[in-house]
Amino acid sequence: MESLVRIKGVAAPLLRINVDTDQIIPGPEIMASVDESYARWGTGLFAYWRYLDGAGGAHTPNPEFVLNRPPYDRAVILLADRNFGCGSSREPAPKALRGFGIRAVIAPSFGGIFFNNCFRNGVLPIELSIEAVRELAGQVERSQGRGEISVDLEAQRITAPEGDGYGFRTPPLLRRMLLEGLDEIGATLARRGEIEGFRGRDRSRRPWAYRPGLA
């Protein structure tokens, strides 16, 4: 995966609580084809809210929905509320954000499976207090969306449209996946010695774990 170090641009406020992954990418969009391209998933992003004819249809834009209103239609950052990405484990959820062009989501908390899936798809989830998210959203709205937010993953710092800064923390391994484009599977396979050593000891302790139905 290519590296992601800095993100700067339009941020769209979508401060709804408990946005589940069924909203981020509805079932009918998933079941429309087996195409795994980001572009395909991006079209389905928030389909129930974003299109007047909902999900899996002709995709007639709903002019009221934030991501259909300039300049938010060019958003690279999403400002969200608590428990964003809860529910289904569907990996098309971060793929849809990425396909639309969103590379960072800033929210007070995230669904855990979604949080992990983001890093595998070049999307950075950032935990920030609701007060800070509301401040960012307020500044964005005061500038009619023209005030840009920048995110520096190396420094783990957000700069608001009006210049104030916010620090954040990202789990180090997941951060490296984005910063360095780390091949996670390759990194694990490089630990072959440790893995085999563990399994040698573990097999004698828990033999049934290694052979389903062991007699």
Binding site: S89, E91, I113, N116, N117, R120, I185, T188
Partner: peptide
Amino acid sequence: IGSTEGEH
């Protein structure tokens, strides 16, 4: 888990 974690 997600499908990429599944691949892992």
